[in-house]
Amino acid sequence: MEGGAIKSILVVDDEAIMRDFLFDVLEGFEVEKASDGDEAIAKMKEKEFDLIITDMKMPRVSGEEVVKFARETYPRSRVIVVSGYSSLASVGTALGYGICAFLAKPFTIKQLRAEIDKSLSQKDVNPPGESRRENG
């Protein structure tokens, strides 16, 4: 993941409108969409994404599983959680795996871009263990 290269982003949401919107708005990135956790994990198995933007509440495999898989498989992947719930509590245990940002729906494009920039420019994300230590 060299600095100049186009960053890849995986958008995971069971809400079509959110997937479409993120796909449309994230110009200048290589964006892929997944409508649930299963599909997301399948896509991540094929390739490493620089950023994963995922919803939490999804049928079958939840966002939590996606975060866990991404962080454990690709420690360098950044994760942003978007959620319909305003409270961070809805992120639940996913927080422990190390996420860069939490965006509560509805969010502005400005907020989204700021969080993406911040996440991608972040030198490193605490690995799960350290994150827990830090939180503890």
Binding site: E15, I17, M18, D20, F21, L22, D24, V25, K57, V82, G84, Y85, S86, A104, K105, P106, F107, T108, I109, K110, L112
Partner: peptide
Amino acid sequence: AGVAHELNNPLGGILGYAQF
């Protein structure tokens, strides 16, 4: 909370697309 969540999804789309 459920109602809010139900509303937040379409609202997210509305807000996002309107701004975009």
